[in-house]
Design a protein around this nucleic acid. Structure first.
Lengths: 76, 76
DNA sequence: CCTATTTGTCAAACATATTTTACATTTTTA
DNA sequence: TAAAAATGTAAAATATGTTTGACAAATAGG
């Protein structure tokens, strides 16, 4: 599940910390989500979308059949 | 966070079990979400929306400032 | 270049979501 | 009205999301 949080946050010249404050989560949470460590809860997804002035459907790119394996790019 | 899952599921004459199967979760998970015991994960929200042929934004009614207290109607 | 701000990361604790098994209750249908 | 199907619920176990504190690395601005 990819997202456009970083892109939109930067457009609005907002730091991870400011965005985190606005949606009442820790800075690390925003960082982890931007870096696809995990997906936000549904409530947090709605909060972020509201703050970035976009819909949840537009903010996240869901693709059916997302494999559960460690696919990221965890290697140095 | 309210949702229109039951409504749309019934429109499409689908049982909780069938919907659960289609999105690869247990029947109890669908039941709990319909009865607002907890919110689905973001991925599950997208899956359900896709199956019910609606957007996530339309399927869920998020209202800013959802109190975290036990507000439901847990009493007999 | 120096310094402040921002971002990345880690581990431990805690919170929430999901599964499984099992059974009771309600609703549908033959 | 009896049987079948659907729904509600509960407890324990597991998985996933979030916080806190701390520190290192990168980036931005004077």
């Amino acid at each position: 599940m990819l997202n456009r949080i970083r892109e939109l946050r930067k457009t609005q010249k907002m730091s991870q910390e400011l965005l985190a404050n606005k949606c009442d989560v820790s800075r690390q949470t925003i960082n982890a989500i931007e870096n696809n460590k995990y997906d936000p809860s549904l409530v947090l997804a709605f909060k972020i979308a509201a703050i970035l002035d976009i819909t949840v459907d537009e903010l996240f790119q869901f693709q059916l059949a997302e494999s559960k394996s460690e696919e990221d790019s965890n290697e140095k």
